[in-house]
Design a protein around this nucleic acid. Structure first.
Length: 181
DNA sequence: CCAACGATTCGCT
DNA sequence: GCGAATCGTTGGC
């Protein structure tokens, strides 16, 4: 049949993080296959949602399938996909497959999408996208293909708490922010 | 109120 | 490998 199965967003972050590996993210005409994700849950000390709703993390406590975009180090933006209430998945890397010209224009020299802030810059994602719903032509995530993919796991990057929890996921052999070991 | 610190990246050594 | 950039959020007094 022709009905395209959409992604089920209403999941605990670790499950959604795995499901998003190999899915296609498209933002205003640019995007590609998601190759690296990290999961953050409400009872996770490393998560922005750990201390309950605030102005910044409001989207994490909103409806599933929306974006949570936050500013890091006062200068970069990071994109998350909201799952079940208080759960979110950080998109850390992408294998670009369309809209390359725009990405190059926004990124300049260097890797395009091999890190959460690089990816946001390449796709033109900013705080204006915080709370936006995935599902329109200009802002969407399509499910991974039926082809089985090998998914690597490991500890998350750049956090100072719950450093050993293995909630980082990556597509084997793809562009990543850092290698898995 | 004020000080410290990021779910990072880039450039230089 | 190391440190600067840069500012909103957080946590302590």
């Amino acid at each position: 049949m022709s009905d395209a199965q959409g992604i089920r967003f209403d999941l605990p972050a670790p499950d959604l993080a795995r499901a998003l590996i190999g899915a296609r993210l498209s933002v205003r005409g640019a995007g590609g296959l998601i190759t690296e994700t990290e999961a953050y849950t409400p009872d996770d000390p490393a998560s922005h949602s750990f201390r309950g709703p605030t102005r910044r993390n409001a989207a994490m406590f909103g409806a599933p399938g929306h974006a949570y975009v936050y500013r890091i180090y006062g200068l970069h933006w990071c994109l998350n996909v909201v799952g079940a209430r208080g759960h979110a998945v950080l998109i850390r890397a992408l294998a670009p497959d369309h809209g390359l010209d725009g990405m190059v224009a926004r990124r300049g020299r260097g890797a395009l999408c091999a890190g959460p802030a690089m990816l946001s810059q390449a796709l033109g994602i900013t705080g204006d996208d915080d709370g936006r719903r995935f599902g329109t032509a200009d802002f969407r995530i399509e499910p991974a293909g039926a082809t089985p993919v090998r998914i690597l796991t490991g500890p998350r990057i750049g956090i100072s708490r719950a450093v050993d929890v293995p909630w980082r996921f990556g597509l084997a052999g793809a562009v990543l922010s850092r290698p898995f070991r």
